[in-house]
């Protein structure tokens, strides 16, 4: 499985990518929505995108809308990973086409649980298996 981590914080990208790698994902990183689109337009294929909301150049919600509007990218599972915890923000992201929503801060188990929900990893992968 391949994942794209989109976040303007380098530290955050490293944390998310590290957890995903511990779960067997090959990871790629982009610092905002436009950079993510550029990677995909160049032929990068991913199964999962973990997307922050507030980023410069192109924010996460805009990225979700663009990805859902493009047939070639519709199979990508989209998960918002953000500090935006207002109920209406979650509703907006889901309505735009995000499949899941993970609130920062979170532990490795929470990301693992979301991926189990999405059917991307088996339920039997324990938190202890995480790097």
């Amino acid at each position: 499985m391949r994942a794209l981590v989109v976040d303007d914080s380098r530290t955050m990208r490293r944390i998310v990518a590290g957890i995903l790698q511990g779960l067997g994902f090959e990871t790629h990183e982009a610092e905002h929505g436009a950079a993510a689109l550029a990677l995909l337009e160049c032929g990068l294929e991913v199964d999962l995108a973990c997307i922050d909301w507030n980023m410069p150049v192109m924010d996460g919600l805009e990225l979700v809308v663009r990805l859902r509007a493009t047939p070639a990218w519709r199979a990508i599972t989209l998960m918002m990973v953000t500090t935006e915890s207002e109920q209406d923000k979650i509703v907006r992201a889901l309505a735009a086409g995000a499949h899941e929503y993970l609130l920062k801060p979170f532990g490795p188990e929470a990301l693992r649980d979301k991926l189990v929900l999405l059917g991307m990893i088996p339920a039997g992968v324990l938190a202890g298996d995480l790097a």
């Binding site: 915890s85 207002e86 109920q87 979650i90 509703v91 992201a93 889901l94 995000a98 899941e100 929503y101 993970l102 609130l103 801060p105 979170f106 532990g107 188990e109 929470a110 649980d113 979301k114 189990v116 929900l117």
Partner: peptide, 20 residues
């Protein structure tokens, strides 16, 4: 807590069945 609702609760369920 936010950490607790992060543990395996689908986001669609969170907005439907919970209030802040």
């Amino acid at each position: 807590s936010q950490l607790e609702v992060n543990r395996g609760l689908p986001a669609a369920m969170l907005v439907r069945h919970f209030e802040r």
